[in-house]
Amino acid sequence: MPPKAKSKKKGGNVKSSTVMDGLSTEDMSKDQLEEHIIHLREELDREQEEKSYFQLERDKIQAFWEISKRNLDKTKAELRNRSRERDEAEERHRVEIEVFWTVTGIHATLNFNEIPSTGTGPMAPQHDGTATKWYCG
C-alpha cells in the first residue's frame, strides 16, 4: 500500500463529536459517556472475537484446500503411472502374440469351431460360423 498522505489542517484544533441516541458526545453527561465507553468496548470485544473466529475458519479452509490439492496431484500421478503401465503391458502382450504367431506359424485365421468362445474385447475370438478370427487391436 502506498503511504497515507498527510493532511494539512488550517484553523487550529478541530474536535469531532460522535452522535449517539441523538446526542453528540459533547452534550452527554459523565455517566452517559461512561456508558457509551462501556458499550463501545463491548462492541470492540465482539468484533475482535468475530475477527479471530473468521481467521480460524479461513485457516481451516486454506488447510483443507492444500490437502485436497495434494491428494488430487497424487491421484493424477497414480493415474498417469497406471495408464503408462497399461500401455506398456498392452505393447508387451501384442509383441508376445506376434512372436508366438511367428514361431508357431499360426496365421490370423484359425479353424476353432469346436472350441467355444468365452472372451470379450479386442483380443477375443470372433465367430462367423465357419472359422474363428482373431483380431489384435
Results as ranks from 00 to 15, higher is better:
R41S: 10
M28F: 06
E98Q: 14
S16D: 09
R84C: 11
T130M: 13
D59Q: 03
K6C: 06
M1P: 15
E98P: 10
A124D: 03
H39F: 12
A5Q: 00
K9T: 06
G12H: 14
I97D: 04
I37P: 04
R58S: 07
E78N: 15
S117N: 12
D128K: 01
D87I: 00
K6T: 11
A63I: 13
R86I: 12
D87L: 02
K10W: 09
E88P: 03
W65D: 11
R58V: 00
Q126S: 09
H39G: 07
D21K: 14
S117M: 08
H127N: 03
W65H: 10
R70T: 02
E91D: 13
V99W: 02
E88L: 02
N81V: 08
C136N: 14
H93F: 15
Y135P: 03
T130Q: 14
T118G: 15
I67C: 04
Q126V: 05
E90T: 08
V99G: 02
E47L: 15
I61H: 01
H39I: 09
P2A: 15
P116D: 05
E42W: 02
V103P: 11
E42M: 10
I37H: 06
M123Y: 06
K9A: 01
R70M: 11
Q55N: 01
M1E: 15
V103F: 07
E98C: 10
K51S: 15
E96Y: 12
A124G: 02
D45F: 14
G129V: 02
E88C: 04
S68D: 03
R80V: 12
T120P: 05
K60T: 11
G22L: 00
E66L: 07
Q32I: 05
G11K: 04
E43L: 14
E34N: 10
L110K: 06
E34A: 08
R46S: 11
P122I: 00
A131T: 07
T25R: 13
S29L: 13
E57H: 11
N111D: 14
H127F: 05
D21W: 15
E57C: 10
L23A: 14
K9M: 03
A89H: 00
M20C: 07
A89P: 04
N13A: 08
L40E: 09
E78H: 11
E91M: 10
